[in-house]
Amino acid sequence: MKWLAPLLLALSLAAGTIACMTAYSPWLDAVERAVAAGEELELGAPSGRSVGAGGSIAPVATAGARLTPELVATLRRAGVERVRVRQFSFARWSHGWMFATSAAGLVLGAVLVRREMRARVKASSGEAGSANSPAAALACVRQSLRKLDAEMPTLREADDGMRRVTSELGELQATHLDTVLQSRERIIAAGGLGGFAAFMSAYSVMERQINRAWSAAADDAADEVADCLKRALALLDEVERLLPQ
């Protein structure tokens, strides 16, 4: 069942695009009726195939040729079944029904996908207090930042102090910060798109301070590292407040 929605979407898209291929290539019968009714049609591509002297292949009619009853008859004698025309008409579109069906399939597929997504989020939101929850991840972030902030006086003086800072912050980026980013669906389910946007907006500002601290540590700019850690901690309050529960 998990594959039903993507399969439906894929098949519907394929059907819709296949249907579009005949939008400008109606049956010759339909063209004949239109020409007889006085409609002015022009060929959009060469049509028909004739073998000339010396075996050279050439079209019976070239692109741009005006379709007249005589030309249509000539093309029919040449075995042509469809022609490409420059003018589109729903009445001449042989696969219009397929396009409409594919559109319905795409809508149904979208409904199924959203329903499945809601079910998945509902299942995972039961783990609100789990170690993988964004709230728990933010708590770990706070703990790590506090620890680093407290150790900064020592780390400044140590030979490999800044190296340890990049290592700690790198670990933070790869684990707890990543956990928050992977919780997108859960956060949207809890707070809607508006709540998610407000949270991510604040979160990103804090995250950028952590990234800046990492860069500063890589450049041995200890003062900048200290400033960034303090700013990140200050911003974390708002981030946690904005996290939808």
């Binding site: 929605a5 979407l9 898209l13 819709g16 695009t17 579009c20 939008a23 400008y24 959009g44 589109f88 396009f99 594919s102 559109a103 795409l106 809508v107 597929g109 979208a110 996908v113 959203r114 997504m117």
Partner: peptide, 20 residues
């Protein structure tokens, strides 16, 4: 220019975006 094809493509593209 096959303007209708651009339109049909846009319609399909919009419908594809309705999902997740």
């Amino acid at each position: 220019m096959p303007y209708a094809l651009y339109g049909f493509g846009a319609f399909l593209g919009a419908l594809l975006g309705l999902g997740a």
